[in-house]
Design a protein around this nucleic acid. Structure first.
Lengths: 131, 131
DNA sequence: AAAGTTAATTTAACTAGGTAAACTAATCTC
DNA sequence: GAGATTAGTTTACCTAGTTAAATTAACTTT
């Protein structure tokens, strides 16, 4: 395997394990957090808006949102268009959100702390060139 | 989500989809190929050697190797130590291997073609700094 | 207004990763 | 040599991504 692609996969797996470890104390998984986070950014989103925003396929979001709803993080209600489902955070989720966000920011800072801010920007730019 | 971590996850998902598309014509998935590839490098490997080499957990390799065996890519036989299982490529796999490798090298070259070789090396180095 | 098409979501089935715990063979310790 | 520990593998059960096909509501066309 090409060393760059190999390293990228290794790091992605490493980071997603680390994200899960960090979120574990809050009873969340990485993908659940990413959904909560983007809903919170937009206050309210339909499933289609979520999967387009996160750049994954629709069934992934159906499943994660269903689970988040079972766990009491989000509430789902029909949109104007009766085909679509609109999702927003519950009271409890809104209350817990800041503490989780703090944990995550702390974690993310620790993860990139070995890079200077120039290196971080450069790394993002180089990654964006792959397409 | 931190933009660097976000971009890394996005690229990892993008690349693994692309690898799967490339391998599709050979009837393989990305993780199956990575197992075949590392067995071929070492001629013969135990399950533990494989999962340590690929840096994933043991059950992942048990499952993938079982599937590869069902599909006729590898053969499994007991090692000296009767606890361990030794895996090597079948005749058929050895015959098909070069063509698949050619497809993959071509694919990998295309994927990193937007980077100069200096940029590629720099990108690897920056990724390695994350730990 | 009926028929056809498009859009939003879901279901089913697959790969691919993880943890926790069980099982069996090998090794260590006393 | 019996008992305890360690090592290799597996089983069970999660999350998390994919594609293909089904379902239902909305929109277009004629």
């Amino acid at each position: 395997m090409n060393p760059l692609i190999h390293e990228l996969f290794q790091k992605s797996r490493f980071l997603s394990n680390e994200v899960n470890n960090t979120l574990n104390q809050h009873g969340l998984y990485a993908s659940q957090w990413s959904v909560l986070y983007c809903i919170q950014l937009h206050e309210e989103m339909t499933l289609t808006q979520i999967w387009k925003y996160l750049n994954v396929e629709a069934p992934t979001i159906t499943r994660t949102v269903t689970r988040l709803s079972e766990l009491g993080w989000v509430e789902i209600h029909p949109g104007k268009d009766r085909r679509e489902k609109s999702v927003r955070l519950t009271e409890q989720a809104l209350k817990d959100f800041p503490a989780i966000k703090t944990s995550m920011i702390e974690f993310e800072d620790r993860m990139v702390s070995s890079l200077s801010s120039e290196e971080e920007i450069l790394l993002i730019k180089l990654l964006q060139k792959i397409k």
